[in-house]
Each structure stands twice: as C-alpha cells, then as structure tokens.
Design a protein around this nucleic acid. Structure first.
Ligand SMILES: [Zn+2]
Ligand SMILES: [Zn+2]
Length: 735
DNA sequence: AGCACGCCGACT
DNA sequence: GTCGGCGTGCTC
C-alpha cells in the first residue's frame, strides 16, 4: 500500500497552515478528510483537523510523526466547511486551525492532559529531580503535568522532566477526554405546531418570488431594504418555507440583542420542532445537543446569533441576516470574521441564497447592491398602510437660550403630558445607562476616574455607587473629594436613571419603567417589563439600545430621543451612520398600530445630515451624502481598514513598540512603492488609552482595496513579531 | 501557544 | 569564567 500523509490543521498562532503526519490505519480518504485527530507537535499532544490526504510530504520523511488517534466515528467537517475555513484564513489572516475550531460548538473539543508516570525511584542528587520524584511517589506514581507544576514550581521543569525520561526514571502518558459527554436525552422545550401562513401583500410577493426562484436555482444574493413594519419577517418565513418544501435547510441570523423569546417564537410558531435555536446563553451541553441535532438533519431551520452562520446544516438553501448593519455580526475574537462575508462565501460554496435584510442597510452593503453584487429588493411601505411617524427635531441650544436647563425640551414635555392625558404610551430613549456619566469636584475639578481604566466613573443612584462600565470597578460615592476634601461634588451627563428620576418628578402620577442592562439582568426581568408595557400597565418606558432593536410595542405613540448627539460625537468614521440607524430604529417604535406615531429628537446639531435624513425617513439622501464623504476620506467601502492594536501593562514599552512598528511600516511601504495606496494613521493612543490596567495604542491603515491582497501577508508577519500587537481587518469601529 | 536555542549583564 | 535574562523562531 502506498504511504499516505494527512495534512493536519492545528490551532497554533503564527504556525504553518497544516502539518504532515503519517496515516497508519487502513481507512478510506473520505473517512479521514475533515476528521478530528490527535497528533504530536513538538513534545505535546494536541487536537487537530485533517484537511487533506496526500501520497507525499514536502519535508523529510523521517521527521514525520504518525497520527496518534482519530476522534469521532466520521469526519466532523464537510468538504464545503473545509473550503470555507481556507477562505477565512486568507480573509482574516488567522490560523487555519483557528478558523476550523470556531466552526464547532464549544463542547466538541478534546481535553488533552499530559501525565507523568514514575517508573523507578532512582536516587538523585539534583534537588528539582528529587522534588519531582517525591511528588510523584506521594501521588501513587502518576500525576498530571499541570498538577506537578503546581507542586514543583520550577521554571525549567520540562527540561528536567526530559532528562528524567531519557534516564528511564519517568514516562509520559496522555489522557484524551471529550469536553462534553454525549447525552441522548436533551430536554427540549415544547413547541407549538405550524401556524398557517399570512397572505403577503404586493411588495412582499415580489421579494418572495425573486428569492424563491433563486433558492430553486441555488444561486443569488439579495438586499431586502424595507422600512420598519414593512413585513420583512414574513418574507423570510415564506422563503424558508419554500426552501424546506424543496428539501433544503435555512439559517436565520439575528443580532444577539434581538434574539429574544418573542423573536424565536415567530419561527417556532411557523416551523415547530424543525427549528433549532442557537445563542450565547445556551449552556455548553445545550449547544452541543443542538449542534448535533442540526448536523443529523433533525432541524431544518436554525435561528441564532453570529456563530450560527457555521450551523452544520446538510443541504443549505438559504441564509438570512436580519438587521444586517448590526456591529455584532463582526466577531471580536480571533478569527475576527464578519458573519455577512462568511455567509456570502458559504452560500457561494454550498449553492445557497443570501438575504440581507435591513431598514437601514450598512453603507458597504448598499454600495455592493448598487454595483450589482447583490440584488436590491425594496419594500417602501408599512404593511398596515399607516404612514411612518412624524419626526421633529428640537434644537437644544435654543432651549438653553430660552433658559430651559433641564434635559427635556418644552416640546418633548408637552408631548409626554399630552400622551399621559390621552392614556397613550411613550418611550424615552437614552443610549447611556446609570444616573450621571461624569462626576467631578466643584472645588478642584478632579474627575472621578476608574483606577484601572482611563475612563470616568458613572454614578448609579440605585446602588449609591460610582461604576466603571469597562472593568466593573465599583466604589461607594465619596462624601468629599478624594483630593481636596471639598464636599461639593457635581454630577454631569444624564443616563437612563436620571431620565427616569426626572420624569417621575415632573409627572409624579405616571407609571414609569426603566429598561437597560441594569434592570434586565435578573432572571425573567426582561419578559416582565415587556409584559407590563404590552398590558398597558406602563405609561413611560425609559431605556437604552435594548428598546430600539426589534421590540414591538404596538401601543406606543410617542418616542423621545433625549440626546441624539451621544452617538454623533463618538470619534469614529461610522458615527453618522450609527446615528442615522439609531434614530431611524427608535423612530420605528412609534405608531406601529392603529394610532399615528410621533418622534421628537433632541440635539445640539439639528442641521446634521444624518438627523435631517432620519427626520424625512430618507435613507437614499443619507446614503448619498455619507458615501460621498467615505469616498473623499477613503473609508470603507472605498478602502480596507487594518487596525493594529498594541496593549500591555507597561506604557513606555507599548509606545516604543508602536513607534518601531510604524517605522517599519513606513519603510516597507516606501520600498514597495505603496505610499499612495496606503495611509498610515498614528501611532496614537487608543481613544480609551487604558482599560483594565492595560495601556492601548493603535496604528490604523487605510489600504486601497486593489492592493490589499498584495500587502496583507507582509503586514501580518510584521505584526506577529510583536507579542503585544494584534490586528483586525475591517474592524467595525476604530475605537 | 510552549519550548529550545542563543547571545549579553551580575554573580560564584 | 558561569547562571540566567527573555528576544527569535520552530514545531510535521
Ligand atoms: Zn476636589
Ligand atoms: Zn475600569
């Protein structure tokens, strides 16, 4: 028999994509490719993934070790998933093994322990050696390496152990365990059966027809641009139904924040037990069970957050990304993939159809649709025929000029008062939690900052604490200034607690409820608040993002955006886009049912184009102005952004590394004559220079889209040489 | 990631 | 002269 070699992908940073190992078992290639295996790398045993079988290896044969063991009964990756992983490692410059590892549920991972076994109790003079032997003897002659390291805390323990092994005093053994034991019985929540479909209206019919045709053909990408309430969900549901009718599976991605029981119910009501739900709050065991349910073909519809894009459906028909503009589709861990791009690529590989849905598409996606990379489907009308709510901008500068120092404009107060009298519900939106976002001493000006982060502490009135929203640091509110002992401390910058407090004071009889991370962390609190609102037991709902994304409050007729500038003032190229999207989304909460809606947006920059466009519900106008700025300043989609972050405990080291690297980059780009194609910003401190006691600096590259592939590998290699540096290709934001 | 190899400061 | 610091680079 001809010798066979396995190309095994290992999750080692800055290593090669695959390593060659000998195949000793008599197993067909098809049962090997895509399979998990255990191999030796250096002197440790690790889990890897076989991605190919060849009859030759490009290194000397005597260096090649055998595959130690095969895991599972069959390959865990399909050829399509392997191809997707190869694409990911090129696109995001991550190890191939890391791309593959992130496709599996956390439970599918071998836990490998190195054990040390005592063979004979040799007399040794060396102190470390006798410590090791004594420790082993005390533990019946067998210890895990990690346990031994704790008992014998010597730095060079592995070289000492190597000597002992050579002298035949000890031997190595390995234990390989699966992280999750396979459980056949998984307690599944009872799901209701199929509910009959809704009769679609004309604009939905057109979209459904186009998507269904593409699903039949196994090819196509769509941007479904529909205003809030235009009935995008019904389009998804009918397209999924069609895919299922022809024996294909569907994946629906929803932003984590919108993946509520109500959202899931939309799908389980229609598709019953064919639905598998996938989100971060599932336990490891639940994830494991769901994953196998999907892989075994017991679920045809997967509803989940970002990582559900890797759901192992057998016959992909359709991937839907709802609210495609959401930043949560971009992963913040290595590999830093963008689920939109992965979904597109996966559809290309597996003959699936991609549907991106949004009321406010990202600039990148709309631009791609304009170029013809995807087909634009527009749904401009609300399904109930009601007009979009009227949006009013209030210039807060004039309020101040008038002598109104409160956080509410006269107009907003009047509208809330009217609504209360009419027995109608209102929403007050504020994108910051806590009471005051900024606390300082009136006498000496000291700003209360987190000792671990370069960020001001937020006053939380309910707990009487100052909190850091980045590391969780908390202290009781100081009675006097820590520096000058002055008792006069001022609180600036309103958060949701302050809104709640003020509104209760102004309208003492109103029933006010606040909904933000602080009030929904308790179990069921989320559901309880929604119930209160739906039963009309609440007059005014105060909240953050959480109430803007996807939740349906049919009775709400007034939405107040208390401070639209918060998002606008963030120093990032996406701030205008974020603001437009946020105001449009919040506005979409108003007047969804019978009564017409009204939106009041408070701002200090009423003339800003993102707000002006949001007022008119005019996406096109916003897009035209924003895309022009992106093109002029060479931001995405007209460039690729490469963000290089350097972080560490010792600031001078970080600055030195950042400057060295910037020098290297300049030099490299000069030599390669890429000066006109790449713009280097920085090095500069990150907008939040210190977080959790780590200093952060960054270098931003704006790279011409045509030369990205020519330079990205070189840049990656440079970055890899600095242990404190990491890079992110096309990060969502530059912060 | 580990771990080894290798070249410069402070110790027996 | 050696011990050990961690910079650089390899692991099939
Ligand atoms: Zn003071
Ligand atoms: Zn902090």
């Amino acid at each position: 028999m001809k010798p066979r070699f396995a190309s095994v992908a290992l999750n080692v940073p800055a290593g090669s994509d695959t390593y060659s190992y000998k195949i000793v078992d008599d197993i067909s290639d098809d049962m090997l490719i895509g399979r998990r295996a255990v191999v030796m790398l250096g002197n440790r045993l690790m889990e890897g993934y076989i991605v190919d079988i060849t009859d030759h290896a490009d290194i000397e044969e005597d260096k090649i070790k055998p595959v130690e063991a095969l895991l599972d009964k069959e390959p865990i990756f399909t050829k399509a998933m392997l191809e997707l992983a190869f694409w990911m490692k090129e696109q995001y410059l991550c190890p191939l093994g890391a791309a593959l590892a992130c496709m599996l549920p956390p439970g599918v991972k071998a836990r490998i322990q190195k054990m040390i076994v005592l063979l004979n109790e040799a007399d040794v003079i060396d102190n470390t050696k006798s410590l090791i032997i004594n420790a082993l003897r005390d533990n019946k002659g067998r210890m895990a390496l990690n346990a031994l390291k704790k008992v014998v805390p010597v730095k060079n323990i592995s070289s000492v152990l190597a000597e002992l092994e050579r002298d035949g005093v000890i031997a190595y053994e390995y234990t390989v365990k699966e992280s999750v034991r396979i459980k056949d019985s998984y307690n599944e929540a009872a799901v209701s059966g199929s509910i009959s479909t809704v009769r679609p209206v004309q604009q939905q019919l057109q979209a459904i027809t186009a998507i269904n045709k593409a699903v039949d053909e196994g090819e196509g990408a769509f941007l479904l641009h529909g205003v809030t309430g235009s009935g995008k969900t019904e389009v998804y549901l009918q397209a999924i139904q069609h895919a299922m009718d022809i024996g294909k599976d569907a994946i629906v991605l929803v932003p984590e924040i919108s993946l509520t029981p109500q959202m899931v119910a939309l799908f389980t009501a229609r598709f019953g037990s064919s639905v598998a739900v996938w989100h971060s709050r599932l336990s490891m065991g639940e994830k494991y069970a769901q994953w196998w349910r999907i892989k075994n073909g017991q679920a045809q519809v997967v509803v989940g957050a970002r990582s559900a894009v890797f759901a192992p459906v057998q016959r992909l028909g359709l991937i839907v990304l709802d609210e495609e503009q959401e930043s949560s589709y971009k992963s913040d861990m290595t590999p830093k993939y963008d689920a939109r791009e992965v979904a597109k690529r996966r559809c290309d590989i597996e003959a699936g159809v991609l549907v991106l849905g949004s009321a406010t598409p990202s600039l990148e996606t709309y631009y791609a649709a304009g170029k013809g990379d995807m087909r634009l489907l527009v749904m401009p009308d609300r399904i109930n025929g009601k007009p979009l709510p009227h949006v009013d901008i209030v210039d807060m500068r004039q309020e101040i000029a008038y002598g109104n120092k409160s956080i509410f404009s006269r107009k907003l107060l009047k509208a809330v008062a009217y609504n209360l009298k009419a027995g109608q519900q209102s929403i007050l939106f504020m994108n910051r939690r806590g009471f005051s976002t900024f606390v300082s001493c009136r006498n000496c000006g000291l700003v209360m900052k987190c000792p671990h982060c370069d960020i001001s502490l937020v006053y939380h009135s309910d707990k009487g604490q100052l909190q850091c929203h980045y590391c969780g640091y908390k202290i009781a509110v100081p009675k006097v200034c820590p520096k000058c002992k002055s008792p006069y401390i001022r609180y600036f910058g309103a958060g949701t607690q302050r809104i709640e407090h003020d509104v209760k004071q102004i309208f003492p009889h109103a029933r006010v409820v606040r909904m933000d991370t602080d009030t929904v962390t308790k179990k069921n609190a989320h559901r309880d608040i929604l119930r209160l609102v739906w039963r009309h037991e609440v007059d005014i709902l105060v909240g953050t993002q959480m109430i803007a994304k996807g939740l349906d409050f049919p009775e709400v007729t007034l939405v107040g955006v208390v401070a639209a500038d918060t998002a606008l003032n963030i120093p990032d190229f996406r701030s205008a886009e974020d603001t437009f999207q946020l105001v449009t989304q919040v506005a979409g909460r108003a007047g969804r049912a019978a009564k017409p809606g009204m939106v009041i947006v408070q701002t200090y920059q009423p003339e800003h184009y993102s707000l002006q466009a949001a007022v008119k519900h005019d996406y096109e106008s916003f897009y035209r102005q924003e895309i022009e700025i992106r093109e002029r300043l060479k931001y995405p989609p007209f460039s690729n952004i490469v963000k290089i972050s350097l972080s560490g405990k010792h600031l001078p080291d970080i600055i030195k590394a950042a400057e060295d690297m910037a020098g290297e980059l300049h030099c490299y780009l000069n030599n390669m004559c890429y000066n006109n194609d790449v713009e280097i910003l920085g090095p500069s401190p990150a907008p939040m220079e210190k977080i959790k006691d780590e200093y952060r600096w960054q270098i931003i590259l704006k790279v011409d889209v045509h030369i990205m592939d020519d330079i990205k590998y070189d840049i990656k290699r440079m970055v890899d040489r600095y242990s404190c540096a990491s890079m992110d290709i096309n990060p969502y934001s530059m912060l």
